[in-house]
Design a protein around this nucleic acid. Structure first.
Length: 266
DNA sequence: TAGGCCATCTGGTCCT
DNA sequence: AGGACCAGATGGCCTA
């Protein structure tokens, strides 16, 4: 059995370390779970409530920058698979718009038992064992041609799966660098899951902010022009609302629902 | 050298 | 029956 499980379902004695964060000192929070001691998202971590960005919703408004490039991270080792340490852990930087790169899935190789025609980067392997087994066990049940056909199909299926994983790697933000080897399969899946949950979290937080601002906009006299959708500028509207409170009270404290950092007015 | 990751083969199971 | 899917086994490559 593999040593990793995606979900930290066991609240057992030893902490289950996530494979993508294994051996990493300080993974980003969106890679870890929210409040879970184990890294990676816990299955019970509802994105809508207290996700990784819950701190942003309570208090100071900070731009949600999930992928800040940490320059003092360990330098990527050339020729090495994206170190799980840097993948999860600081190796990320936001690359802007990731080209979806969807579609155009190359047709997998046909029933060529050996990658002579396939341009896969992997060398051919596993022939000695397979051929032995083929001659020993396989011939009892099915002919050699049938077995080879099945093998080719399975190979093709796995290649398709790997192609899909490559496409997934291309759209999740991590250090796409030629000097850094690609994410492992498990790291890709876990990273993608965390990324989806993080995006859902951010979206939900944005929705709540919009709802709040639309409630306060009318009370503060902010009337958006016709056709203007306030949803697009929640932070600006909130700032205007705070500024309106300060100016109307001569710089006094705003007695609104904003507590705490009123002294450091923006 | 151990461990992680991967590709491949293989047999079983399920579905169409 | 044939194909898809799955998991176990095996061996190679690479890094710490």
């Amino acid at each position: 059995m593999k040593s990793f499980e995606c979900e930290s379902s066991s609240e057992g004695d030893e902490p289950t370390i996530h494979p993508i964060s294994r051996g990493i000192a300080d993974p980003p929070q969106w890679l870890r779970g929210s409040a879970s001691t184990t890294w990676g998202w816990h299955s019970s971590c509802a994105p809508a409530n207290d996700g990784p960005s819950s701190s942003a919703s309570a208090g100071v408004e900070q731009p949600f920058v999930p992928f800040s490039h940490n320059s003092n991270e360990e330098s990527p080792v050339p020729g090495r698979r994206t170190p799980l340490g840097t993948v999860g852990l600081g190796g990320f930087y936001f690359q802007g718009v990731c080209a979806p790169n969807l579609g155009a899935v190359p047709a997998s190789d046909e029933n060529s038992p050996e990658p002579g025609g396939s341009n896969r980067s992997q060398p051919s392997r596993a022939l000695p064992h397979s051929q032995n087994v083929l001659q020993n066990k396989g011939k009892g049940r099915q002919g050699k041609a049938v077995r080879l056909n099945i093998n080719a199909r399975e190979r093709r299926r796995m290649h398709d799966l790997n192609d899909a994983l490559d496409e997934l790697r291309s759209v999740i933000p991590y250090a796409h660098s030629p000097s850094v080897r690609k994410l492992s399969k498990i790291a890709t899946l876990l990273l993608a899951k965390n990324y989806i949950l993080m995006q859902a979290n951010a979206l939900d937080e944005l929705r709540r902010l919009v709802a709040y601002l639309q409630g306060t906009a009318t009370t503060t006299g902010i009337v958006p022009p016709p056709g203007f959708d306030l949803d697009g500028f929640p932070a600006a509207a909130k700032f205007l609302q705070q500024h309106h409170n300060i100016s109307s009270e001569g710089g006094g404290n705003n007695d609104g629902n904003n507590t705490g950092n009123s002294g450091t007015a923006l």
